[in-house]
């Protein structure tokens, strides 16, 4: 019984929870900022990379190879190592402004590099799932390769990949706390500071709560989109 009380006190002490709220909330705003910026950048870069990977013809081969090398490297490398490369490596290079960015900016760069690799694959799967006959129909009407991509292939591809894409964004949102290892002051790091000072752990619960509160709606929204699509596809089958 004593042990249980100890656990409850260490993790679920309401007083300590309330005390930690303002600090951790201040940190979480940094997480939110990184999420929004990184997600916007990832959406654009990943689509560009996916298009490059699908370019036809031998002349585009070097570009395709580069795109593949990029996704292989950043999907295969643990995000914490990418964070070290960016957060410690770039400042160490002494390359003018690139070496003098804020911790938060390095954090955003890290997240963008890694998640662009994941989301590229998501987009690519979407682009490949659009049947070749759609492209043939577009080209046969005299539309150019790029017009067929722009008006026919990509709009259909993006619609199909929204659920897996949101799934990756849930991962990105949580990983905004990993970049605290390169010195970003955010929810997890402030929770840790609070915990060390106070000698208990409710501050972690505060941080966790914030993350969960933004993840759950996104997860439910994703479920909803999947359900809607399934219903539509079933309706079409008849």
């Amino acid at each position: 019984m004593h042990a249980l009380q100890q656990v409850l006190h260490a993790f679920f002490n309401l007083h300590s929870f309330t005390l930690a709220l303002p600090d951790v909330w201040a940190g979480f705003q940094v997480n939110l900022k990184m999420m929004v910026i990184a997600e916007a950048l990832v959406l654009v870069f990943a689509l560009a990379l996916a298009i490059v990977r699908g370019l036809p013809g031998p002349t585009a081969k070097p570009l395709r190879v580069l795109a593949i090398a990029y996704t292989d490297f950043f999907r295969g490398t643990p995000i914490i190592i990418v964070a070290f490369f960016v957060g410690f490596g770039l400042p160490g290079l002494q390359l003018g402004f690139i070496s003098n960015l804020s911790f938060v900016t390095y954090g955003v760069i890290t997240l963008t590099l890694v998640y662009t690799a994941y989301v590229t694959e998501v987009y690519r799967a979407g682009i490949e799932s659009v049947h070749a006959s759609q492209r043939a129909a577009a080209r046969s009407l005299g539309l150019s390769y790029w017009q067929a991509m722009r008006y026919i292939v990509i709009p259909q591809a993006v619609r199909r990949v929204i659920p897996p894409l949101l799934n990756d964004f849930i991962g990105l949102q949580k990983d905004t706390s990993i970049v605290y290892v390169i010195g970003v002051t955010e929810a997890a790091s402030l929770a840790q500071q609070f915990s060390t000072t106070n000698g208990d752990f409710p501050s972690y619960l505060v941080a966790a709560t914030f993350f969960i509160l933004i993840t759950i709606p996104l997860a439910r929204f994703t479920d909803h989109l999947v359900a809607v699509r399934e219903r539509r596809e079933r309706a079409q089958a008849f």
């Binding site: 009407l141 150019s144 619609r159």
Partner: peptide, 19 residues
């Protein structure tokens, strides 16, 4: 593209753009 503008083709599976 110029050639295709003057030659129309219609396929067995219609291939309308569903979106």
């Amino acid at each position: 593209n110029a050639v295709r503008k003057k030659i129309g083709i219609v396929f067995q599976a219609y291939n309308l753009f569903p979106h």
